[in-house]
């Protein structure tokens, strides 16, 4: 494997966004790119990352390899990279280590690190293609704000989507709260628009602790997409350039 990223910031942000949710992960490398799929310890959430080969330049992967990496270790090493450094990942066939180099674009500084790999026996889940009943695309900062504000009151949030809009509601010991958003097009800045596409009304309840955690990815993209269907996991997607993505799936709360 040899994969060169123009900006180390992208990988730094991705790892930052998932390291509190998942610890030891396989980075599955093949000629289409680098993918990661991992459940959190309690098996409530699933992280699915895809960094397409087009996001790297150049990208070369002659044989499929799984790089088992501890994300705490990776974070320590990535801390040594500046955001605008050029980052290159390298691994040999049947590797013991993954090699990372950080090149400063404006000086002759080159740093090089090896991280020991782990043998990780991870369950792979098949994620079915789903036609979601409701898809909401909104500014990622807005979603972060909603989850943060409501998590101060309650452990869970009900998300209801109707043709009127989307409503986030919570009930806690001190009282209750809600935030409603309507479909809205911002003509001056499309990134601030709220788009809602709905085929049938949806109402689901989710743990806010996980949603707050997902929002650590907000720095990766101005926009976030929420996909919901009754009685299936919520998909929270942060799109990256070149069709790469960071997706989180969250199992709904049951009961009531």
């Amino acid at each position: 494997l040899e994969a060169r990223l123009e900006q180390a910031a992208m990988l730094k942000r991705v790892v930052d966004a998932i390291k509190d949710l998942v610890q030891d992960c396989n980075f599955d490398c093949n000629d289409s790119g680098i993918a990661l799929q991992a459940m959190d310890n309690s098996h409530v959430a699933l992280v699915s990352m895809m960094l397409k080969s087009e996001s790297f330049s150049p990208f070369r992967c002659d044989r499929n390899i799984a790089l088992g990496i501890n994300l705490t270790s990776l974070t320590k090493v990535l801390r040594a990279a500046q955001g605008d450094d050029i980052l290159t990942l390298k691994a040999e066939d049947a590797p013991d280590v993954v090699n990372l180099t950080f090149e400063s674009p404006e000086s002759d500084r080159l740093s090089e690190y090896d991280i020991k790999l782990m043998d990780i026996d991870q369950e792979h889940l098949g994620i079915p293609d789903t036609e979601y009943a409701a898809t909401i695309t909104l500014p990622s900062s807005e979603f972060s704000r909603i989850t943060r504000d409501l998590s101060a009151l309650s452990e869970s949030v009900a998300i209801e989507c109707t043709k009127e809009g989307v409503k986030f509601t919570c009930t806690g010991d001190i009282g209750n709260g809600s935030v409603s958003l309507r479909q809205h097009t911002n003509v001056e800045n499309d990134a601030k628009s709220v788009d809602i596409s709905l085929t049938e009304p949806v109402a689901l309840t989710f743990s806010l602790k996980y949603l707050v955690n997902f929002c650590k990815a907000a720095g990766l993209s101005d926009r976030v997409r929420l996909c919901l269907s009754n009685e299936v996991p919520l998909l929270v997607e942060y799109g990256l350039s070149n069709n790469s993505y960071l997706r989180f799936y969250l199992a709904p709360k049951i009961g009531d």
Partner: peptide
């Protein structure tokens, strides 16, 4: 976690 479904019940193991 009480009342919390598991993701593994929705997605099948490969």
């Amino acid at each position: 976690i009480e009342g919390q479904g598991s993701i593994a019940t929705f997605f099948e193991k490969k």
